[in-house]
Design a protein around this nucleic acid. Structure first.
Lengths: 157, 157
DNA sequence: CTCTGACTTATGGTATATCATGGGATTTTA
DNA sequence: TAAAATCCCATGATATACCATAAGTCAGAG
């Protein structure tokens, strides 16, 4: 059994002219000995970048390998899209990765990026877009589960 | 357990007059000590070249061997086609392979080739054809999973 | 409780290594 | 021997690794 690892928290970091960003130290700490790189791809569901370990994608590849026959390509459009889009991003000794133009453009990221933990995955957002997205998610959740709106004390604003 | 290897990303490289193409360095890195060659064959499902490690084809052979499904004429025919068509392509010290006329013609590749990661396999496309194919796949995916197209602002109807 | 110092992290800048690619030399094959 | 395939070297562009500084965090001492 492996030790659990989770991407948590929300961190904002600067992006320089070359597209370099520091991967949050917590994220790096999680990977520690396992790896010095992360895999990123354009999210299919939102204007953001998604990141995960190569291990996770490898698991996906193994699942496909065993569940489908070698020649079939019908049902794996989605996964094929991911593999073609995903790229390894190794981080250097200072913990930075350089994001590709393609990814930055898709997420509309220019000079700052928000890292949002999603458990086994994480997302990277343009700060303004994330602000809106978070508000949307909160509203959505509260609509479905109004009891959650009962707060111990003062609210968000 | 072996270390994971995945063909990822989408890379475009030039094809010179001799039919030489650089195999993306990431792809070479995956094979590292294992091998200095790659196996390629004409895709049965698309106008492109498919590539993989010899190891994968070996696995395919083993699976067929031990399968109770050896009555399947269709699968038999397909595997014959693959093994008959596949060829080893060694790459030199600079990481280039020379694709055969047969493969180039099938994929309509002349002066540029797009390498598309597919996990355990990869594909090589004519750039224009790939552009169209990618658009097709993206449309297909969104059609099958409409909820993914929901954006923070633009609503789903 | 406050100040101070050690340590970690983020970030800007720069040097270095790697890769794709063109050209040419050498070997193989017919 | 001619043609074709393979190998090797050179080069410019790009990406990567490294160094230095700054800022922020935490712990312990006074």
């Amino acid at each position: 059994m492996r030790k659990s690892f989770l991407f948590l928290d929300t961190i904002i970091n600067k992006v320089d002219a070359k597209g370099r960003v520091s991967l949050p130290s917590d994220y790096r700490a999680i990977l520690k000995d396992l790896s010095t790189e992360i895999v990123c791809y354009r999210s299919l569901s939102a204007p953001c970048i998604e990141g995960c370990t190569e291990e996770l994608l490898d698991k996906l590849a193994t699942d496909i390998e065993s569940s489908m026959d070698f020649f079939s390509q019908e049902q794996d459009d989605l996964t094929n899209l991911i593999f073609g889009d995903a790229k390894r991003f190794p981080f250097d000794s200072t913990g930075r990765i350089v994001l590709s133009e393609k990814l930055l453009k898709h997420a509309q990221i220019t000079d700052a990026a928000v890292f949002v933990g999603k458990g086994r995955k994480f997302q990277i957002w343009n700060p303004q877009n994330w602000e809106k997205e978070e508000a949307r998610i909160r509203a959505e959740v509260l609509k479905k589960r109004p009891q959650l709106s009962v707060k111990p004390e003062g609210g968000a604003e």
